[in-house]
Design a protein around this nucleic acid. Structure first.
Length: 516
RNA sequence: GCGGGAGUAGCUCAGUUGGUAGAGCAUCAGCCUUCCAAGCUGAGGGUCGCGGAUUCGAGCUCCGUCUCCCGCUCCA
């Protein structure tokens, strides 16, 4: 099956079996927003728990945090989000290329200045030592004209940018006949502004209202609480703060199912270290995080690092962990060495010292930060992409038959165990209910008695239930049931009293974490 | 945002030159009891994404709009 079809089937499967629904579907949906259904929420919670426990339980020097989605607006000035994401953009309809309108105009001004310089240089050559540039510029008609043109343009441009006047920016591009460098045409769309952050008003009356943003990343909630946690937790470097939570980005193009959504969940851990040790910790977390992925057993060959050549303004090293989705290798997690950029920025904008007093050296400094940041929804997509399979099996009559099965790691599966009476009579349902009642405190279990046993197995396969136990007539006499394994479809007969222990060993998070 | 494709039952889809909607699976009730889907009987479920136009009459034609998919574009 082609990858494209696999992905299409996976999306359909997610809806059919209650994993993922489009948001507000009865109102035609909301673009790039999705809801997690009855099975999806269980899987998502389990993935989050795997991440959280691997951070919090396995590392004495990492603690948790749950910071608010709303933050003081200055946060986003300090972080650089306000300035970096307010670009006026314009498209050329012929070349389909998109440009920053301000860049196009600036380039045009540059061109005019270049012409002036060319004229001036020519004159300088001609007049030699007696050349007076100031005089020349004022007296030469051609240069004066160009200079005036540039000044008028520049004034209009600066005013338009200050007023945030998008219509005027478009008008400048038209008036000065600025054309697309690729197509050479002037077939432009309107200038539009894309602010990546969602804004809303905080405060009930219009005058007192303050513009606040829905956070575009959870990291800043950690940075602004750095000192609170360090002081109250008596944390010593190196230490980390972990947080999971929703973030919001008004993406221009949001696509590929839950890969890029406007509302999404991040799982971030910011690790504060002594300056100079960041390279070693960067390597440590790079390896630790890769192992976390591979232990799930989704296929080691499906992962790779992608080191960044071009680094962001705040980073001195950065890599992505990429997973081979049905639509190719894409970023799932980023590991960044963020230097002291964030804490220094917040120190500058807040006027509060965000330093660490090092008792070993008796000096104060702003810690460096190693960030691990993973998209929970992307992780979800990674898990289900790997887990979805259409197996071809042969039945007893020799005919081939297909089986759709979600081979989820048992520790992540939404439902761990299905309890199935072989037939719904002869006291089998009653025994099954009794087993359910004893075991439901430990795992998410489902009871099913409708339809043939084979059909019920298939239904459980489709939602990824790793174990089915079947209560049959032999159960009545010897207190044993069969465990049927999802991946092999093989069965094993065990005593009811041993059930809980056998299943728990295979689905327990604590036991699973020991593999890390 | 541009270009292309699509939207009919929970899912996958059919629906002729326009004549007020069908199948399979799924769901529910009952029968049958059988360890790997597809046994029997019956039932429920759709104003065909939404709005408008043309027409005596629109799932089908036209316009608009929303959503999804693919490619480009963007992506701390």
């Amino acid at each position: 099956m082609a990858n494209e079809d696999v992905f299409k089937n996976l999306v359909a499967h997610c809806k059919e079996y209650g994993f993922i629904f489009q948001s507000s579907e009865i109102y035609d949906g909301l673009s790039a927003v999705y809801d997690y259904g009855q099975n999806g929420v269980e899987l998502k919670n389990n993935i989050r728990k795997y991440w959280w426990d691997s951070m919090i339980l396995l590392n004495e020097n990492i603690v948790g945090l749950d910071s608010a989605i709303f933050m003081h607006p200055t946060t986003w000035k300090a972080s650089g989000h306000v300035d970096a994401f307010n670009d006026p953009l314009i498209d050329n309809k012929d070349s389909k290329k998109r440009y920053r309108a301000d860049n196009l105009i600036e380039e045009h001004i540059e061109k005019i200045n270049a012409k002036i310089k060319k004229e001036t240089d020519k004159a300088r050559k001609r007049f030699g030592d007696s050349f007076d540039e100031q005089m020349f510029r004022q007296t030469n008609a051609r240069v004066t004209e160009l200079q005036q043109k540039a000044d008028i343009l520049n004034n209009r441009f600066v005013k338009a940018m200050n007023d945030n006047d998008l219509t005027e920016l478009k008008k400048i591009i038209i008036d000065y006949e600025i054309s697309c460098p690729v197509s050479g045409t002037r077939n432009w769309t309107d200038v539009r502004q894309f602010n990546l952050m969602f804004a809303t008003d905080m405060g009930s009356n219009a005058e007192g209202a303050m513009k606040v943003y829905l956070r575009p990343e959870t990291a800043q909630g950690i940075f602004v609480n750095y000192l609170n946690v360090q002081k109250t937790g008596r944390m010593k470097l190196p230490f980390g703060i972990a947080q999971t939570g929703k973030a919001f980005r008004n993406e221009i193009v949001a696509r590929q199912f839950i890969f890029r959504m406007r509302e999404f969940e991040q799982m971030e851990m910011q690790f504060f270290v002594k300056p100079g040790t960041e390279a070693q910790w960067f390597d440590h977390w790079k390896n630790t995080r890769m192992k976390w992925h591979k232990v799930l057993g989704l296929g080691d060959e499906k992962y790779r690092f992608h080191d960044h050549d071009k680094l962001a303004h705040y980073a001195n090293a950065a890599t992505d962990i990429e997973y081979n989705f049905p639509f190719g290798f894409k970023e799932v997690e980023g590991i960044h060495s963020r230097t002291d950029f964030d804490l220094s920025q917040h120190q500058k904008y807040s006027g509060k010292k965000l330093q660490y007093f090092d008792p070993d050296t008796n000096e104060s400094y702003v810690p460096y930060v190693i960030e691990t940041s993973i998209g929970l929804d992307r992780m979800f997509l990674q898990v289900i992409s790997a887990a979805w399979q259409e197996d071809t099996i042969e039945n007893e009559k020799g005919a081939s038959d297909t089986r759709v099965v979600f081979k989820l790691p048992p520790v992540l599966a939404p439902v761990k165990l299905a309890v199935l009476p072989l037939v719904k009579k002869d006291g089998l349902p009653e025994i099954s209910r009794k087993i359910m009642d004893e075991i439901k405190y430990d795992f998410n279990c489902q009871y099913e008695e409708k339809d043939s046993i084979g059909r019920r197995y298939r239904r459980q396969d489709a939602i990824g239930t790793p174990f089915c136990i079947t209560v049959d007539h032999q159960t009545v006499s010897d207190n044993t049931v069969t465990i049927r394994y999802r991946d092999t479809m093989e069965q094993e007969r065990v005593n009811i009293d041993k059930l809980r222990g056998i299943i728990k060993e295979k689905v327990d998070m604590g036991s699973f974490l020991k593999r890390l």
